[in-house]
Each structure stands twice: as C-alpha cells, then as structure tokens.
C-alpha cells in the first residue's frame, strides 16, 4: 500500500515538473491516432495521407489548444472528402460549419471529447467516453460527445458509400441528396447512441457529485447500466442491429 502511495506521489512530482511536455506529447499522440483513423477511413488525398505529412500535422496539433486541434482535424477531413467528390465535401462542410457556428460559438473547454469519441468508437469502446466525461467534466460535455458521434458516423457513412458519393451527377442530385440526408441524419443507430451517451453522461455527473460513499463507483455503474438499457430499448424500437453482447463486453472493458 505504501509503495502505491509512493508511486502516486512520484507520478505527481513528475507531472508537476514536466506537465507542459507531457500535455504536448499527449496532444501529439492523440492527433496522430485521430489522423491515422481518418486516413484509414477516408484517405483519398494521397498528399496528406502519407506518414510524413501525418506526423507533421500531428506535431503542429501538439502546440494548439483543443479547439484548434478540432479545426485542423475538420480541415484534414474536408481535404480528404474534396478528393473523393464535391458532394461528400459539401456534406462534410455543412456538418462542420454547423458545428463551428452553433457549438464553438461558446468556446467550450471540453472539445477534446470531439476527437476522443471517434477514436474510442474505432477502438470499439465508445461507451467509455460518456463515463469519463461525466466523471471529469460537466453535463454540457454531452454536446461534445454527441458531436463526436456525429463526426464518427459521418466518416463511416462516407467511407461505406464512397462509390455512390463519387458518382453523383446533376441528373441524380435530388435522389442523391435525400440518400445522403437519410444516411447521415436519419441514421437511427447514431441517434440511439447519442441519446444513450448523453443520458449516461448526465447521470454519471449527477451521481458522482452526491455525498455518498463510493460515489464514483456508483456513478460508473449507473452510467454503464443506463447506456445498456437505452441501447437495448433503441435496438428493440428502432432495430439498430447493435450487438448487445459486444456492448456489454465493451462496458465491462
């Protein structure tokens, strides 16, 4: 037990001395992982999908604040989408523009969740983000998590329908537009995930602030169970085809 306390104090000491470099390194690795995920899903622009450009962009992101990293990621995704087709670029532009006009207007301090959420979704553990957000941040972080989920499902939609999006012409623009609208904003799995994440985050925040023993543990348990219940209800009502077994394993992990 004493050894653990000593380790904790030494970690605190190291962080206290080198926090500036540790934060920069963390931002670098986070940006690197996010860029790799973007390049693997929608890497249509070869000039910025290579290893060297990715590392350079990640180094640049290391010195930016979280809002700046979000802006750089949005620019990279838009550049990739532009090389796929004008329709996918416009779709991405509309989503990111609405995000910046309505959300970044308030200069939130938790915009790092917008980058973390797609990373965790790609790693198969999206349920961790609302739990972490509720424990460490505030209820307004639910909006950041929701935006992160929208960005993730946007990238998944575009990468899954790249051939269709690349063949849009003026003849089929109306049908294509409705296909895009239904695919992105009508995605019921995304809507159920957003509701589950938001509800879980708010519940975790509420329970961890209670004056009870093991408040954090209770909050995590409540958050995990609430996500599971909402995802189950969503699967039954909207037939979202989520694998509840994998959801359960992901939460335990």
């Amino acid at each position: 037990m004493t050894t653990l306390l000593e380790i904790r104090e030494s970690i605190r000491g190291i962080y206290g001395r080198y926090s500036q470099y540790i934060i920069m390194a963390s931002k670098f690795f986070l940006s690197l992982i996010a860029l790799n995920i973007v390049n693997s899903r929608v890497g249509y622009f070869e000039s910025i999908s290579g290893v060297l450009p990715t590392v350079i962009i990640a180094i640049f992101c290391a010195v930016l604040p979280a809002n700046g990293i979000c802006a750089v990621m949005a620019a990279v995704i838009l550049a990739q989408l532009y090389h796929l087709s004008l329709a996918s670029f416009l779709l991405g532009l509309v989503v990111f523009l609405l995000m910046f006009l309505l959300y970044f207007r308030f200069s939130p301090g938790d915009s790092i969740l917008i980058i973390l959420t797609p990373i965790c979704c790609n790693l198969g553990i999206p349920y961790v983000v609302p739990l972490a957000g509720g424990l460490l941040l505030g209820p307004a972080s639910a909006l950041s998590v929701a935006i992160g989920l929208i960005v993730h499902y946007l990238i998944v939609f575009i990468s899954g329908n790249a051939a269709s999006l690349g063949n849009i012409t003026t003849d089929n623009i109306a049908e294509s537009f409705q296909f895009i609208m239904n695919g992105v904003f009508g995605n019921r799995t995304m809507l159920v995930m957003i509701v589950a994440a938001a509800a879980s985050l708010i519940l975790v925040y509420y329970f961890r602030r209670m004056r009870i023993m093991y408040a954090w543990s209770v909050a995590i348990a409540v958050g995990a169970v609430s996500q599971l219940i909402i995802l189950l209800i969503g699967d039954v009502v909207y037939d979202t085809n989520l694998s509840i077994g994998l959801v359960f394993l992901g939460m335990i992990a």
Partner: peptide, 17 residues
C-alpha cells in the same frame, strides 16, 4: 450573426430535401 448563418444553411438543406 452565427445563428442567422446557421439558419440559412438549415433552410437550404430543407429546400434541397
């Protein structure tokens, strides 16, 4: 200003739909 621009975008999306 930002809300007006966002509303114009929403309206264009609705109009196209």
């Amino acid at each position: 200003i930002t809300g007006t621009i966002a509303f114009v975008i929403f309206f264009m999306i609705y109009a196209l739909d």
